[in-house]
Design a protein around this nucleic acid. Structure first.
Lengths: 220, 220
DNA sequence: AATTAAATTTAGACAAATCTAAAAATTATT
DNA sequence: AATAATTTTTAGATTTGTCTAAATTTAATT
């Protein structure tokens, strides 16, 4: 089976929303895709007909296992291209997402498997998100939000909560990237802001919101 | 300005047809694109409105200079991706065309310029066709058809007349590729077939049709 | 030059993906 | 539980790109 760009964008968006929301709603999806709820309803009917989503009108929807498989294929293509763009073409990590958004819809399986091999079967993309292998399997991350990190324990940034240009711009400005080692020195109860320290640089403060969007792993 | 995949395919097809045909006709273009003449007429109106083609109904059409510029951008993307696929991902030269056909529609200029740089600013694609630079300029080939080559002069294969899988399959079978050095030993007047010789391999015969689709350059 | 043949264009329809506005169903609130 | 507010769906249009069948124009032939 082959899918249109529009269908793939819906499948991918549902997959992403399912990860952080108990139930994905029509409005939420419309908002995510910058479209209208009516358009979402229309597309849900098409995706249901193709057995990619479970859908009962007025009662929500979710990806079928087939839908998830398709989603993982799209995610795989997206993240491999992101890796390629950053690693080989030397794009900054805040530039790769938008371009990969287009490249991900080129769906030759042979192309993607050869690209994967060429890149050395990378496990994570430039934002620290895991890349599914050609069977659709991927590393389950042991990362936690920086807001949950214990005081004075060194951890390594392994991912970001989302790849909005706003977040990436902020991280670039603060010189934080994947692999950066840091520790939390103090938590301010007033606004849950954190004082953090990176190696021998002076300590500085980050907001609760930023902390929640920084994924870290202990030690190693 | 941004163009749809359909528009880009029309522009590219017109550009290609213009190279070998004095005037490109509606039927010819329809045939090339596997579509109906009526669809061609419809699209010509749109392309005219965007000033990409000169078009007067019933009196033919051709690309404007703006149209040619767009075409060269598409050709550039196509050929750079072909080079990437063959050189980096180790695709056979008869596999790269179809995949590049999809990749060429991803139109980030920065992506293409960085890809170009990464590849070392290649001058020709795996079929020997010249790659336009980021100004739209490209090598004009001094290649001639093998059917025009003098007897007993060594020449090097520099390109093919088209990239149909049929032609490429035949060349693969005969072990002829870009860079192959060969000479014509004899021309048979009966059917214009040629006896050719590649280095120390035994001589063999090729049809006139094949000879015309093999582009060669002298010596070097 | 008149007729026939071929090429091209128009008219009208269709599928995909979207939209707005209105209707229906669900959920929340008094 | 009835009403209000919110969410979701339907109905009907719109745009893009395509199609078939008929009409028109140009080119070829007698």
């Amino acid at each position: 089976m082959n899918f249109s760009v529009a269908e793939e964008n819906y499948i991918k968006a549902i997959w992403h929303l399912q990860r952080y929301n108990d139930d994905v709603t029509t409005n939420l999806l419309a908002n995510q895709l910058n479209t209208r709820p009516a358009s979402v309803t229309d597309m849900l009917k098409k995706l249901k007909a193709k057995k990619l989503v479970h859908y009962e009108k007025y009662h929500g929807f979710s990806l079928t296992s087939e839908g998830k498989k398709i989603a993982l294929g799209i995610i795989r293509r997206h993240r491999l291209w992101e890796f390629f763009l950053a690693e080989k073409l030397k794009f900054d990590w805040d530039e790769v997402h938008d371009i990969a958004e287009d490249l991900e819809h080129v769906s030759s399986k042979k192309l993607i498997d050869k690209l994967d091999e060429y890149l050395g079967f990378p496990k994570v993309d430039p934002h620290g998100d895991p890349i599914p292998d050609n069977q659709g399997k991927m590393e389950t991350s042991s990362a936690i939000g920086l807001d949950e990190l214990e005081i004075n324990k060194v951890a390594e940034v392994s991912g970001v909560g989302n790849q909005s240009s706003e977040l990436l711009e902020l991280l670039k400005h603060k010189n934080i990237r994947i692999g950066t080692k840091l520790e939390v020195k103090k938590r301010f109860e007033f606004d849950q802001s954190l004082e953090i320290k990176i190696r021998n640089l002076p300590a500085f403060t980050i907001s609760e919101q930023l902390a929640k969007n920084l994924l870290v792993k202990y030690g190693k």
